[in-house]
Simulated scan of single mutants.
Amino acid sequence: MPNLEEAIRERAYHLWMADGQPEGQADIYWLNAQREILMTSLESSGSNAPATAPLDTGFVATKSAKAKTARSGKSKTRAA
């Protein structure tokens, strides 16, 4: 792909437009577009590399926040 950044920018714009142009979420649209473009690139190159969770940053952050809440709840229960 000649210009990866331009392809990501265009895809992020289309995703943003499709969602009704919400404000303050540019990074989310950029990351989603980046993931789509890179996954498409991997698939078209015939790579056998598996998709990895770090590309889905929203999932990782949510999972981490839930784990912290669960741990803090357990430690309070044990201390009581």
Rank of each mutant, 00 (worst) to 15 (best):
K63G: 10
F59E: 01
L15D: 02
G20K: 05
A67P: 00
L38F: 07
Y29R: 01
G73M: 04
K66F: 05
A67W: 09
E10F: 07
W30G: 00
M39D: 14
D27T: 14
A79Y: 10
S41I: 07
L15P: 00
T69K: 10
E23A: 14
L4A: 06
A79L: 14
V60E: 07
M39L: 13
R35D: 08
P54F: 08
I8Y: 03
A26I: 12
G24P: 11
R11K: 14
E5W: 13
A79H: 12
T77R: 15
D56L: 06
W16T: 02
E10I: 14
A51P: 00
R9P: 03
K68D: 06
T69P: 01
S44P: 01
K74P: 00
G20F: 00
P22N: 11
R78S: 05
G73C: 01
P2N: 13
G58V: 07
E23G: 10
D19I: 01
A65Q: 12
Q21H: 11
R11L: 07
T62C: 02
Q25L: 15
G73R: 06
Y29E: 04
Q25T: 11
A65E: 13
T62D: 12
H14R: 13
Y13Q: 10
K76L: 07
L38E: 13
A26T: 15
A70F: 12
S44D: 14
L15E: 10
D56C: 03
E43K: 12
S64M: 09
S64F: 11
Y29S: 01
I37P: 03
A51G: 05
S72W: 01
D56E: 02
E5Y: 02
D56A: 08
S75T: 09
P2S: 15
L4G: 00
G58W: 07
G24I: 06
K63E: 08
L42G: 03
L15V: 05
L38V: 06
